[in-house]
């Protein structure tokens, strides 16, 4: 499938809220209850159709433990979208959201689209955080809000695509400086025989983020 843009995403949130499961459900359409814990960062990608355009999502899944914060911060900078995940059955994961938001605001580009995800909504009988609370938090901080279940795949697709749509809107509004690699958006250059007018990536020596 052909695509016009590449968007970089980052998934963050407390330990064991289901970040890796969300990614796996989105990329492979399957759920795995027993899997290795994420050390540092892991990667996944998929091409989706947004606003009649093909968009490739490159998604970085990060480790949730405090210690890894300093490492994953370097991934914030080059991301256009962030999925901030909490677990609706664990109040503490919701309480830490402010800290995550501050971290994002401090280390990311200002135009990043953030979607707040209340995961594990299939376990509504063990719910500790009400949907309204999540909605209110999202409203106060200008985030998109959605409740998902990586297990039953409810809203998982939507969460990723809503974010992509919002980024597309922002591109149309001219908010992003697409020549800057750090905004997390790349225009995909098609193969020369398909479209002879496209230029090759003008700057092959991308600077490393460290």
């Amino acid at each position: 499938m052909d695509y016009a843009y590449v968007f970089k995403y980052i998934i963050i949130g407390d330990i064991n809220v289901g970040k890796s499961c969300l990614l796996l459900q989105f990329t492979d359409k399957r759920f795995q209850s027993a899997h290795d814990c994420t050390i540092g960062v892991e990667f996944g990608s998929r091409i989706v159709n947004v606003a009649e355009k093909g968009v490739k999502l490159q998604i970085w899944d990060t480790a949730g433990q405090e210690q890894f914060r300093s490492i994953i911060r370097s991934y914030y900078r080059g991301a256009a979208g962030a999925l901030l995940v909490y677990d609706i059955t664990k109040r503490t994961t919701f309480d830490h959201l402010t800290m995550w938001i501050n971290d994002l605001r401090n280390y990311s580009t200002s135009n990043m689209v953030i979607v707040l995800i209340g995961n594990k909504c299939d376990l509504s009988d063990r719910r500790e955080v009400q949907k309204e609370e999540g909605e209110a938090f999202a409203r106060d901080h200008g985030l998109i809000f959605i409740e998902t279940s990586a297990k039953t795949a409810v809203n998982v697709e939507d969460a990723f695509i809503k974010t992509a749509r919002e980024i597309c809107n922002k591109i149309d509004d001219g908010v992003f400086d697409l020549t800057n690699e750090m905004c997390g958006i790349k225009i995909h250059h098609k193969l020369p025989n398909e479209n002879p007018n496209t230029r090759r990536n003008s700057n092959p020596n991308q600077t490393s983020g460290c």
Binding site: I39, G40, V41, I71, S74, E181, N205, Q206, C210
Partner: peptide, 22 residues
């Protein structure tokens, strides 16, 4: 690696953290 934007920590951090046990 530089041209593709692949940082060392993307693939090697778990090698050093877990001594390849993973």
């Amino acid at each position: 690696f530089q041209a593709e934007g692949l940082h060392t920590s993307m693939y090697a951090s778990s090698w050093f953290l877990t001594l390849f046990t993973k």
